[in-house]
Design a protein around this nucleic acid. Structure first.
Lengths: 355, 355
DNA sequence: CTTGCTACGTGAATCGTTTCAAGCCACTTT
DNA sequence: AAAGTGGCTTGAAACGATTCACGTAGCAAG
């Protein structure tokens, strides 16, 4: 072993961990030996003795999806400085795969876990957490169970999108949404309705829903026919995500409907290409990097504190206004919504914390 | 310890690793004990004894970039079945950060390393490899040094893009390229020229280069003015990546130039939104997932074989033809290129392997 | 000269697993 | 009945780092 090459044994450990306790000359001698022999300390042995693996597990649906990629970067930014390395796992929305990975991560004794769980039942994670693995849910509500979480307020996001259109004076708004079994879709719908109510309008009158089976470009394009058939005619459309919006955009172009001239359009997610479309797409942005960074911070807290109180951090999505929603309609109706909104809710900035 | 709860000691290990050597009743007893006590084997201790960490390090430039995300998925697909977990690290193109991560990964005793190195000098990696860490370069040429690598043939990619335009009969082709210091840019340029030569044309006459400082949408848009000023006028443009192409597309739209009517356009990378543009963009696709999967396979080979001979796998990019390049010009010139191409090179399918 | 103190260094014990030589037992063979 | 055989099980050693109760030397004070 490197230390023998140097001099003593346990002292070498001190050179690495408590340099100040070792006398100058000895320290130097050991360091030279380390350099000469190319000694590299073994995390495994360290872990066995000390108990920390210097490793954090990250389980998400699909790393190829930039949403998750960016989120992981957020976590990485916080954790790498603390000496942690990330074990990243894509569950591919398979409960089985997720279980296998969780097992592996537990065997590796990860010092923490960030996860966007596939499995509906969070019992397993609660148990894991109870077994001593600090756990933070990513973009998933802990539903009262004792777990930390970081989420984005999708209700608020839906409200932002719809509210923006209402502010511009639109009163007949199409809403191309995915299946309500997807929590995000249901939440955004709730938000959109809320915006209407705050404007003193009945959602049943003004919000015209079209449900598609999946959030894809093609389904968006197909939805256009249905949207255009609505009477009285719509002046704006909001979509549950940007892919749908892109499809709608294309469909409208095909039908000769000008955006935003004849129809305003707003998407959701603010994916990379939203700003590159013609016209650039207004959208609702999710703070992906911050989501990951904040989750990592929560993790560190949970890992250090003795008695930890679980917390949920909820981020506010952000409306990004671009050309696809154009300027206000020439009606005066818009101002009513603005006033209602202003009174209804205190100005909120940044993340809201609770529970 | 779980085993004491069960019965014996070393036997428990056999239940886990050589179940067939343990008698039925004993085995069952131990398994029950394992279930009851919630025993989870420690990879660290396992590693300490056996020497394998069941871990593979992946170092890339930026995980938020879908190119890398997809590549990692490719590697993950191959490695997870073998029981490996990936330690994913973003170097952010910082040599320092890369070094720190490499250090950490070596301390973790990763069983292998996949890396898109930032540092030009590969000595450190060669040394690491010599120290017994199987290493595969991702999208980076090993330059004769003893390392495995997986790359995409960018020369061929440039040739594909230019060749496609030549086949369509274009003879004056703009090439919006990034700085030649980026290997990819230089290679794609080389390939474009080669396509011209194979068509019996002089690149100096037909290929009109415009160099921009960075591969962004904005620089693409700015390049349009320059492109349109060229005499004799261009009929097609190829770009070093899709962002540039998108910028060009937008610039052309602004200038009232129809695509592909007045100008054909081909990009590079085939990013997610290429197919969603109007018109959908022809582009050169890189087999990202396969890149990662193949790298992982190479890694496994290197890890298992005793005397390993380093190999390089080179992938062929693939031309994806969409509406932005339209149909053949009404000249007959196109066929000449087609014939030359057909004779010059045997049909190659899939990956080409070599030293 | 002895005692006590400080400042360093030592080496055994420990973490959880695997490996392996050796032990045990029942049963067969001669 | 002694020796041999095969099937299971055992317990100690080892992996590499950390920790901690001690040992040792040097020095000052009494």
């Amino acid at each position: 072993m490197a230390r023998i090459a140097g001099v003593s044994l346990g002292t070498a450990s001190n050179v690495l961990n408590n340099p100040e306790v070792v006398a100058g000359p000895t320290r130097r001698r050991v360091q030279e030996a380390i350099a000469k022999t190319g000694f590299v300390r073994s995390t495994a042995a360290h872990q066995l003795r000390v108990g920390r693996s210097l490793t954090v597990g990250v389980v998400l649906l699909d790393l190829a999806n930039p949403f998750f990629g960016e989120m992981v970067r957020g976590a990485e930014g916080v954790l790498r400085d603390k000496g942690y390395v990330l074990m990243v796992c894509s569950s591919d929305e398979s409960v089985d795969q997720e279980r296998r990975y969780l097992r592996a991560l537990e065997e590796h004794r990860v010092d923490g876990l960030l996860i966007t769980p596939v499995e509906r039942d969070l019992k397993g994670l609660v148990a894991l957490s109870a077994r001593g693995v600090p756990t933070v849910l990513l973009d998933r509500d802990p539903g009262g169970l004792g777990l930390c979480s970081v989420t984005v307020d999708d209700v608020r996001g839906g409200e932002l999108a719809a509210g923006h259109l209402l502010e511009l004076g639109h009163r007949r708004v199409g809403f191309v949404n995915g299946p309500l079994s997807i929590r995000q879709c249901a939440d955004r719908r709730t938000g959109a309705k809320r915006a209407f109510r705050w404007a003193g309008l009945r959602p049943e009158d003004g919000l015209v829903e079209v449900t598609v089976p999946a959030l894809t470009v093609d389904h968006g394009e197909e939805a256009v026919r249905e949207l255009l058939a609505k009477k009285p005619r719509l002046t704006a459309v909001m979509c549950a995500n940007d892919l749908l919006a892109l499809g709608v955009l294309r469909g409208l172009a095909g039908a000769g409907v000008a955006v935003p001239g004849d129809m305003a359009l707003v998407g959701y997610d603010d994916v990379a290409f939203a700003s590159m479309l013609s016209p650039p797409l207004s959208s609702v942005r999710q703070p992906k990097y911050e989501l990951g960074a904040s989750a990592a911070t929560l993790l560190l807290e949970e890992a250090s504190e003795g008695a930890h109180e679980h917390r949920s951090v909820r981020f506010e999505p952000e409306l990004v206004v671009r050309a696809s929603t154009g300027s206000a309609l020439r009606t005066v109706a818009g101002s009513r919504y603005r006033k209602a909104r202003a009174g209804a809710r205190p100005q909120s900035t940044g993340a809201v914390e609770g529970t």
